[in-house]
Each structure stands twice: as C-alpha cells, then as structure tokens.
Design a protein around this nucleic acid. Structure first.
Length: 204
DNA sequence: TTTCCGATGTACT
DNA sequence: GTACATCGGAAAA
C-alpha cells in the first residue's frame, strides 16, 4: 500500500477505490468502502490547497505519504484526504464518498438529517460526520493499524488484499466544486454505485 | 422538482 | 473584503 501512495495523486486516486476507511471513536468502530475520490496535486494544480505553498492549514499535505489531511470546508464541514505523491511534492486525494459498512448504528446520530443509508456518507462533509472524523485527526498515519483513522483492505470482497482481486468498473469526470483547472478528469468513482455524492456526467 | 442562499474558518487580494 | 475541494433549509416553479 505504501508503494501505491508514492505515485502522483492522479494515479493513486483510482487505486483507493474499494479500500475501506476505518474510524475508531469512543463509542465504537465505524467503516466505509471508498467509492468516490478526487486527486489534487501540488504547484502544477491551481485547484489544490498546496498550490500556493505551505500554510498552517495545509502543512500535512507537505508531509509524508499515507497520512490523513483534514481541513474545514466553508467554515462548517470537515473534509478528509489521503496524502500521497513522490517525496517533496505535496499532493493528496480527497475522499468524496464512502459506502457505510460497519458500525452504521453509530452513524445515524451523527447524521440526523439522513433518511437513507445512501445519504449517510455520500459526500466529503457527510462521510467525515458519519465516521466521526474531525480536525483532531489531521496528520494521523492511515497505514498504522493502531491509528484512530486508517485505511484497510476490503473485508468482504472476494480476492481481498493488496490491490484487490475484483475488477471494478471505474468512471471518471471533472472535479466537483472548483473553479480552476476544471478540465482535468481527476474525479474517480465506482460505476453505478448508489453512494456517490452525485452522478458522473455521461461520457461522450 | 430546481434554484437560491446562509453558515462561517482559513487563505488570499 | 472576497473566495472557497459543502450541506441543507426555504423559496420558486
């Protein structure tokens, strides 16, 4: 997994699909299967937080690959990213949606507005709320089994393991909610999954 | 159903 | 002061 994360974010991103994001809170364990991500690179990507250099908010993006970058979005929500890329090149992959797997009973009270399981974690702010990911988790090592937030291979899919054994249909499209570098198809999702944050534009 | 807009931390002009 | 990697409530249609 560490090897996977050494590549450029745009190449790492599709490889994260299908992995599980696991979070341990005081009240128990929750997890979700990653079904949608977006790549953000460094100086060459105007839409990235890292584009204008290190600040107190984005410094985690300039650290080692495999850590969790958490930031506050629009002053209200938390968003979670997997730091990745070659050493010395800030980059990260935003996790945009997960499919709830374990501990769903702990997610409902954290997402009081959700009416269906498909509303629980189908967005970058939603999944952080559902899994209990907050600013305190910024910088934790996602590859350390003792971390409160971590990445793990799928538990239930056939061929589970490094890289996964199942062939998953991946769709791509433009990144969501940005105004710069909108032409780059660096959003990736599992085709047809019910837990995507929004549909992917039809391919043409 | 779609569109509009408020909330509000952080960074930048 | 303005923009922003979002969400959800209210208004409009």
């Amino acid at each position: 997994m560490a090897t996977l994360l050494a590549a450029r974010p745009r190449h790492v991103a599709p490889g994260l699909l299908g992995l599980w994001l696991v979070a341990e809170g005081d009240d128990g364990l929750t997890s979700g299967r990653i079904v949608e991500v977006e790549a953000y690179e460094g100086p060459n990507d105007p839409a990235s937080h890292a584009h204008t250099g290190p600040t107190s908010r984005n410094e985690t993006m300039f650290g080692s690959a495999g850590r969790l970058y958490v930031y506050r979005s629009y002053g209200v929500h938390w968003c979670a990213n997997v730091v990745c890329g070659p050493a010395g090149q800030a980059g990260a992959v935003l996790i945009r949606a997960v499919e709830p797997m374990e501990g769903i009973e702990h997610m409902w009270p954290r997402r009081p507005k959700a009416r269906a399981v498909t509303d629980l974690a189908s967005g970058p702010g939603k999944l952080c709320a559902a899994l209990g990911i907050e600013g305190d988790h910024n910088g934790v090592d996602l590859l350390d089994p003792r971390s409160p937030v971590r990445l793990a291979p799928p538990l239930t899919e056939p061929g589970a393991g490094e890289g996964g054994g199942e062939v998953m249909a991946v769709v791509t499209g433009p990144r969501v909610g940005i105004s710069k570098a909108t032409g780059r198809p660096w959003r990736f999702g599992l085709a047809g999954n019910a837990h995507l944050s929004r549909p992917f534009p039809a391919r043409r």
